[in-house]
Design a binder for these strands. Structure first.
Length: 292
DNA sequence: ATGACCGCTGGAAGCGGA
């Protein structure tokens, strides 16, 4: 078993590269074999999970620990639920809900520090049907996220905003289809909110590495969406400026969607270097690597 | 091309998801 540590130090090596993934697991206990197989194959350093669909006490901590990951999670019976897994590290939780919603008890936001990087794991509301109260909740949640993201950005810390945004950002992020036109995932007001978030200074890691093409991370169970490759890009990894300069690679593990008993989402991931940026310039180490 | 699928709860059928 690897050593577990909150901060790199003696017995806990500084990593030269960090791979951060987000995966809407659609029922963590139903999907546990798929999750463990993906962790073993993909070996993300950090994995943000959404849609645990499990009460807090039903999180499979032992199996995940056996796979080499420590975790923090926010469970909820039946619906929602988010988790942050870190390979050989103890994530240090900093927030268990999104500010600004004192009566919002849906488990959709979790924040933790891992190796000096602040990881925000989010599950933005679906919002269907629209218009309606669920769509209003989605928009209000988005505004709370935008406010909080601005505060995170202003800290100057390395920050990752990863999760299922339930937003198809542009028409390039969906297969040619007219059937989604009224869906909450594509509404102009939702896309405008996503654009406003990006405009704070966040970098869309997947789109930066793959500037063209649909880059889907979700294929509907209905009408056999995966075999038709009728997919939507819903899962996004946004990087603060410091991390964006270190971005080396990103992608979607789409083969995971083709497994037996698969989630309707595939994992999306981004790698950031601790050595050099994409332009080859040397970089300072992550902030807390000099501590201890 | 959205009704069709899937998971959860509870122990049937309804809700929520996207």
């Amino acid at each position: 078993m690897r050593p577990v540590c909150a901060n790199p130090g003696p017995g806990c090596r500084v990593r030269t590269s960090v791979k951060i993934a987000t995966f809407n697991i659609n029922g963590i206990n139903r999907r546990l074999p798929n999750l463990l197989a993906w962790l073993q194959a993909a070996k993300p350093d950090v994995a943000c999970l959404q849609e645990l669909k499990a009460a807090h006490a039903d999180f499979p901590r032992d199996a995940i620990r056996e796979a080499g990951y420590e975790a923090v999670w926010q469970g909820e019976r039946s619906w929602n639920g988010v988790a942050i897994l870190a390979r050989g590290r103890e994530p240090v939780p900093t927030r268990r809900s999104l500010p600004g919603g004192p009566h919002d008890d849906q488990a959709r936001y979790l924040e933790a520090a891992v190796d000096g990087v602040l990881i925000a794991c989010l599950y933005l509301p679906n919002g269907n049907p629209q218009p309606g109260p669920k769509f209003d909740y989605k928009l209000a949640w988005f505004e709370r996220l935008i406010i909080h993201a601005a505060e995170l950005h202003a800290t100057g810390l390395p920050v990752v905003l990863a999760g299922d945004y339930n937003v198809v950002p542009t028409d390039a992020d969906i297969y040619p289809s007219k059937s989604w036109g009224r869906n909450a995932l594509l509404q102009p007001v939702v896309r405008e909110a996503f654009a406003r978030l990006l405009a704070q200074g966040w970098t869309d890691a997947l789109r930066t590495i793959h500037p063209a093409g649909p880059l889907p991370s979700f294929w509907d169970y209905m009408r056999d969406g995966f075999s038709r490759d009728a997919g939507l890009r819903l899962d996004h990894i946004l990087l603060s400026p410091d991390l964006a300069g270190r971005l080396t690679d990103a992608g979607v593990d789409r083969s995971v969607r083709g497994e037996q008993n698969a989630s309707d989402h595939a994992p999306a991931w981004a790698s950031v270097s601790n050595k050099r940026a994409r332009n080859g310039r040397p970089l300072a180490p992550f902030p807390d690597h000099d501590q201890h």
